[in-house]
Write a protein that binds this DNA or RNA. Sequence first.
DNA 1: AAGTCGGGGTC
DNA 2: GACCCAGACTT
Length: 364
Amino acid sequence: MGSGNHVAVARALMAWFRRSARRMDWRETDDPYRIWVSEIMLQQTRVSTVTPYYRRFLAAFPDVEALARASLGAVLKRWEGLGYYSRARNLHKAAGILRERHACLIPSSVDALMALPGVGRSTAGAIAAIAFRQDVPILDANVKRVVARLHAVREDVRRASVERTLWEHSRRTILPGKGRETALAMMDLGSSVCTPRAPDCPACPLAKWCEARPLGIQESIPRRPAKKTLPHRDRAVAVIRNRQGKILVRRRSESGLLGGLWELPGSGKTAGETLTGALARELREGFGIDVEVDETFAALRHGYSHFRVTLHAYRCRKTKGKVRSSREWKWATPAELEDLAMPRADRKILEQVKINLHEKGISK
DNA sequence: AAGTCGGGGTC
DNA sequence: GACCCAGACTT
């Protein structure tokens, strides 16, 4: 594409955007805090998924001060089910930094934004462009796809050298003085017209400049990496009730998978072990209690980003010992369990527990 | 550069 | 089932 066409492309994009802009809660505000929250929630997450979470989160934490003051547990509870929980941890941590060092103000420069935990170049660009109306580029999945097709980039778009090229292409789409509108327009175009599969090229305002379209290769850009089959694990989890009918739960480490969430105690099996044997061992080593592993009442398949797991839920009875562990744990009533942030899979297991209790006519 | 990190909508 | 999503961070 000739360099002289960039302004024409940008103008065509703007004209299309004025007719086709999508409406979203976070587009109705100029509050940088709200836009920041939305950008974090939207990382690797669809608009339709985010919307209800965004509303509940902002109702609970309406500004930086409220978020910084809240406990991590309260923040994670509002994030429960949204996934990628490091986003919530980083958001909470960043709020603390903003309160201590920035008088609760969101910085406006890309570099200062990138210094916040959980804010990379793309998110920093989006906040600077949308909240502060700067002429800076973004490169989310939508924009990456649009510019890769526009310039017929056949290489793997994850390669660093290719990514630098795409950033430059994104920068050239900015209509001077219209950084905010350009960013929103490119995202909308990628979301509603230049879609991963079956793009609606006849409706595309950039069709006459698109290099992929005349070659018929638009659907194979960006090039997908070869699919790899995800490993599968089996895991046993225990439902242990004490004499008050409370259930034993423990809190996961704040780093790593599902960090900071509460879960049913459980274990994977190592070589030469049975699943129930591994569960008994984990409870002995991790909590200092002996249990009798009773019947299994649920098996749940669940997929994570890089592996799959089948959770086998066992009812267990404590036969000896008092719970003692270095990890954080508690006996929780059903009502208390509702207030803890838990992984989706564990939540489903507990739903089964409730149903079973109901069927057996046991109250509370 | 490659791996880690969720969950659900959608085809 | 596989693919995809307003990516960041660690190793």
